[in-house]
Design a protein around this nucleic acid. Sequence first.
DNA 1: GCGATCAGAT
DNA 2: CACATCTGATCGC
Length: 451
Amino acid sequence: MDRGLISVDRWEKGSQAYFLTHLHADHTKGLSSTWSHAPLYCSSFTADLIPLKFPHFDLSLLHVFHIGTWQTLNLISRSSGAPTSVEFIAIDACHCPGSVMLLFRGEFGFMLYTGDFRWEKGCKRAAKAKEMLLGAIKDDNVDVVYLDNTYCNPIYDFPSRQVAAKQIIDIITSHPEHDVIIGINTLGKEDLLVQISEALKIKIWVWPERMWTMDLLGISDHFTIKTTITRVRAVPQYSFSVETLEELNKIKCPTIGIMPSGLPWVKKSPPKTKCISRAVLTANCKKAEWSEDDGDGDGEEYEPAGDIGPPEKLHKYIFTVPYSDHSNFAEIRDFIKLIRPTNLKGIVSSSSCYIEPMYYLSLLCQGNRPSEVLNSKLKRKASATVSGSNKKPPGSYIAELARRRCLTMKARLSRIRMSKHSILRKVHRGATIQDNERADLKTDSDGNQVP
DNA sequence: GCGATCAGAT
DNA sequence: CACATCTGATCGC
């Protein structure tokens, strides 16, 4: 706790430098207006937003970094007391405005902290970020990747944001007489709203505080804070509910609601039924173009381990569309194939991520074999970094698949038995780098450091 | 009374 | 059911 060198998205005392990947609430737990432990490094846009979220924050603590430029921090090694330097570079994470992933090089090794990210195929911005990251890594080996493992499970198969945005636009245009409300959070999904605005040639209502963010992004022309001049309104997700919609339909006018993201978009076993909500189907929307097989020859087709597909209790006024700011499984897999780190560790611990990322991705990393991973999996809990030598040869592919399914089932069963409080509550993300360890930072499943 | 933290709802 | 957020209760100062 008090021996840290640098911290990423964690705000306890004890580190000499702090990094914020993006300004979502689950990454700022512990950060406040009165926080003043040490310098805070973040992107320019994040720095612009900090005074809005933390009104009396001491701005002299803020250090803005530029994307794609290496910087050096001169720190003190807590183990030796000697000066030590850490180099870092930030890369666009394409998750929400201002979001970055961070690559660090120091006495702890060479590590990449992805933060939350979504790099889609065919996204120019992601392609540029990828090029930048590869340029920063050069021929070096990344010792450890701290991964956005939110959807690090083959059951999560959802389309690109481009495709999802088109679905949403189709839903709106097929309801020309309806008002539309779209559930969003305080940051993120701006690109979607701009696309809707451009496609429909209308302004979108947002609440006043949200308009400040649009101003900072320079996109406020697409938005308005006057409800009377538009039929499309973006509302806080917490105020988006069946009750809200029923009330609007009862007392105001015909209104539909659209939830971008929403359900876990689980790949279903019969291909033709996959991933399209009943509401969307009954609305007679165009059939979705689902995430294409990338044709890279992997041919990995997983089936869900159980039959807990998406629940079907969708409301008549509500459309849920799989617009996600986190990478789907295929994208995560491609990312790890690209980096091939020695070690891999998830940064998210939540109900859907009871399987650690190494479980599915170990084959793609250096120096790790599936048998080892499967063994370690049986020991449960992510505190162990999966590393070290492996003696057993990998089992056959079919056998491995069978074992995976079996283990997934077991994990699911044990999850069901656990109390709601122990497992369903999300715990916060982050990592603290200690200079007395090599790259294997340790955090337990609750995101706390392990001594 | 205020901020930090947690439980619960959305 | 996810993620991210808000509200309200409780605790410590």
